[in-house]
Design a protein around this nucleic acid. Structure first.
Lengths: 113, 113
DNA sequence: CCACGGTACTTTGTGATCCGAGGTATAAGG
DNA sequence: CCTTATACCTCGGATCACAAAGTACCGTGG
């Protein structure tokens, strides 16, 4: 019975897009895979819900950051693979910078006198 | 003409309560002061809006984490000072831990293979 | 052979949250 | 006086995470 770690829901907000873009900047993935991969890397701290991830993917695509294509795996399963557009790559970098900036700002408030 | 740094609005979510609790764990403050102090420490990265802060304070008080009292400054200005309750102090610690945990999880996803 | 769990995608409704905008009131300074 | 800064409050719109429910397919075990 391994302890389920509760991740504050509020803190999660706004980070999903960053994580999606960064994961896809390493390799193309399909939605379900993104959920599993984020979970694996964070040692189950993240358990993206489908109701969160899929709409986020659709939105990012509509904004021109992602493109998608259906591929059929060897076992016959159909998967919708997402990849970054050029615009998406820029956005991934931009979000990474915003992220660092954000963390620094929070830590400054938390630690400074 | 100092550059105004844009802080991604999305990333801000969920962090306000943490910042409020942590600032108040160092000393009692009134609302307007919290805004200024967060701005000062973060070198203007944070500019809490009043429409964000005051409802957040009210909510934290309703949840029993804060108590408030009106005080009149030497110049005659009335200010509503907030201070942490015992429950609020625990909550501040808890949120700090959640924050660290959250950052670690994000960074794990961002950097891990 | 079929029931079931896991895979894989989608959409709808709900509740929470940030904040722009507007309002009130007072003090200080030109 | 009249503006600016201080100091508080609230309403409404927009956004967002997610529970829930639905569809469909595959592999496995009884």
């Amino acid at each position: 019975m391994h302890e389920t770690v509760e991740l504050d829901k509020e803190l999660l907000k706004g980070s999903i897009n960053l994580l999606i873009l960064r994961l896809l900047s390493q390799r193309d993935m399909y939605g379900y895979e993104i959920i599993q991969e984020a979970s694996r890397r964070s040692e189950n701290a993240f358990q993206f819900k489908e109701g969160t991830l899929y709409p986020a993917l659709h939105q990012l695509q509509k904004q021109g950051y992602l493109r998608s294509q259906w591929l059929t795996a060897g076992n016959g399963r159909k998967r919708k693979y997402y990849s970054l557009t050029a615009k998406g790559r820029k956005q991934a970098e931009q979000r990474q910078k915003s992220w660092t900036f954000f963390i620094d700002a929070i830590n400054a408030v938390l630690t400074r006198e």
